[in-house]
């Protein structure tokens, strides 16, 4: 699935594209533009376009603007919008779905820190089946390059020491650490799930 293929397929019907390809995307049609989601979001002031606005932009075919936006990467998964939406839209999931779809098409903002962190989290957990907090933390410090990484590591030194002293961080995790025993079964399962999903999206 490429970006140009999708543009070609859906022409000027981005709403249909979202409904057919984005996780829970069919729900976008149900939005009545009340704005409760936008008003309920803890990161509200930092969204380029809050959820209500994104939903209207989808209807208005603002495809590039929606998919390249940093907006949906601001979602903290607090579920406040879901709990309060009078139409019961699964807004949190739609935001995750839009972010994932934008990433698949290569349109997500590459420098967005949550885009980077979220990918690292996934890579970290799928490697052994369980999150390695130490490696995840270090990869996060250095996600903006080596010099920035050293600066971040210094800034975070006291937090790290606090965790170390209380036994809530283990430097030996760098050598491998926790993981599932049936790693081959775990990874074969994920590979199959990815294949099935790709086949569905490419249809």
């Amino acid at each position: 699935m490429s970006n140009t293929a999708m543009v070609e397929k859906y022409r000027s019907n981005f709403l249909k594209e979202v409904a057919e390809n984005v996780e829970e995307g069919e729900w976008v049609r149900m939005c009545m533009q009340c704005g409760v989601c936008s008003g309920s979001c803890p990161m509200g002031p930092h969204w380029e376009h809050p959820p209500q606005e994104l939903f209207m932009m989808i209807r208005a075919n603002k495809r590039e603007e929606v998919l390249s936006s940093s907006s949906m990467w601001m979602c903290t998964s607090c579920y406040n919008c879901i709990a309060r939406c009078p139409r019961e839209l699964p807004i949190t999931h739609i935001m995750h779905g839009l972010a994932h779809y934008a990433k698949r098409l290569g349109l997500a903002p590459k420098e967005n820190p949550t885009n980077k962190f979220s990918q690292r989290f996934w890579d970290n957990l799928t490697k052994t089946g369980r999150v390695n907090e130490l490696k995840l933390g270090l990869s996060l410090y250095f996600m903006n390059g080596f010099v920035e990484g050293i600066k971040t590591a210094l800034k975070m030194k006291d937090v790290g020491m606090g965790m170390l002293k209380t036994g809530r961080m283990n430097p030996l995790e760098i050598l491998g650490g926790h993981g599932v025993k049936d790693k081959s079964g775990f990874q074969a399962m994920l590979k199959k799930a990815q294949e099935l999903e790709a086949a569905r999206v490419d249809k």
Binding site: E23, H100, K103, W122, L125, V131
Partner: peptide, 26 residues
């Protein structure tokens, strides 16, 4: 026995819907 990570709510970048759901399914 042999439980795995659920991908919390932040695995959605690399993980699509089905890959994330099967983590908990396992």
């Amino acid at each position: 026995p042999d439980w795995n990570c659920c991908s919390a709510s932040i695995g959605y970048n690399g993980g699509g819907e089905l890959p994330r759901l099967v983590l908990s399914a396992r």
